[in-house]
Simulated scan of single mutants.
Amino acid sequence: MLTERQLLILEAIIQDYAEAQRPVGSKSLEQQLPVHVSSATIRNEMAVLEKKGYLVKEHSSSGRIPSLKGYRYYVDNLVKPTVANPAVVDSVRNSLNNQFFKIDELVAESARILSEMTHYTAITFKPEGQNIRLQGFKVMPLRNQQVMVLLITSDGGVESQLFNLPKQITGEELESIVRIINERVVGLPLDQVVEKLRDSVPLLLHYVQQPLGFLNVFGRVLNQTAHDQFYVGGKLNLLNFVENGNIEQIKALYSLIDHSDDISNLVGSNDDDQAIQVRLGDELEDRSLQNYSLISATYDVEQHGRGLIALLGPTNMPYSKMIGLLDVFRVELARKMLDYYDFYD
């Protein structure tokens, strides 16, 4: 159990270290604390906090920096999100004020904007898409019996896939396939489309080479549309916080940047429906991220589902400011998405 004075000292050290990026000593704290405490008393309290594992010494000097335990305690018990001033809210709102023709464009742009505002790596997941429906199915003939199949979804998304058709299929037969698929499955939720095709149009699918392969590819495209579509902004910002030019860490971070599945698994989802969640160092389960933190926040787009945005940056980031900014950003992103759906619906 920490005393009130120890809490004040821990909070001041974390905030000062985030701003100055150097160990914090008792003399600087003496001038910052809201209560009058001598430098000697502060040193004693810092020694207690160090013994309890909340602070560590980087060098032999008297200055201390927060430990992961100290950050965890601060985030769970002491952090006070900065209330964004109207200028910040206007800046976020104006940045998202472009016209978007696809929801993916908005999701991608939001990641880019957030990374530029923070100089960290930003990750934005689109809403889960449980209510997205197949809005259109089109086939565009190409050359050499090849066609491009276009799937158009109710959120403005367009997915495409190339298929090879058997030489004996005629244009009329192809038109029949397109017409029946549009009659039977357009308008259905995405998770029902493939099953409906399997049940309703098995006879028509013999016109396509390997009918099961057609359905499987169709299913993969639909699944990609409905789940885990995300965009990353400021990937290379991760490298700005590598410790002492650690070559192995740089290699590991490059690998992480290049593999979307790794980033998706890293972010995961918020537990217990928390609006904002912070994970630190060891909690990220990736050795290359020992000196990084991940702040994630959900955003609710009403009947269109719930998405997630996240910031990946150094453990000594200014948490109050970043949590406050992310809170504003998720609200404005949800508002912009609702405007988008209202316009295109």
Rank of each mutant, 00 (worst) to 15 (best):
E11V: 03
A20W: 04
R22L: 12
P23A: 03
V24N: 03
S26K: 14
L29Q: 05
E30Q: 15
V35H: 01
S38Q: 09
A40M: 07
T41H: 06
R43L: 12
E45M: 14
V48S: 09
K52W: 00
G53M: 05
L55M: 10
L55T: 11
H59V: 05
K69D: 06
N77S: 11
A84N: 14
V88G: 05
V88D: 10
V89W: 15
D90V: 12
S91G: 04
R93W: 07
N94V: 13
Q99V: 15
I103M: 14
V107L: 12
A111L: 14
R112C: 10
I113M: 14
I113C: 13
T118N: 10
H119M: 15
T124C: 12
T124A: 15
I132Q: 09
R133Q: 10
G136I: 07
V139M: 12
L142I: 11
T153R: 04
Q161H: 09
F163Q: 05
Q168F: 09
I169T: 13
G171Q: 10
E172M: 11
E173S: 05
L174A: 07
I177T: 04
I180T: 11
I180D: 04
I180L: 12
R184E: 15
V185F: 04
V185S: 02
V186I: 07
L188W: 01
D191E: 13
Q209G: 02
Q209P: 05
L212F: 00
G213Q: 10
N216I: 11
N216H: 03
N216K: 07
Q229H: 08
Q229C: 00
Q229G: 01
F230A: 07
N244K: 14
N246H: 04
I247K: 04
E248N: 04
A252P: 01
Y254P: 00
S255D: 12
N265I: 01
R279F: 01
L280P: 02
R287T: 14
T298F: 00
H304Y: 15
M317P: 00
E332A: 04
A334R: 01
K336A: 03
L338E: 04
Y340Q: 09
Y344H: 04
D345L: 07
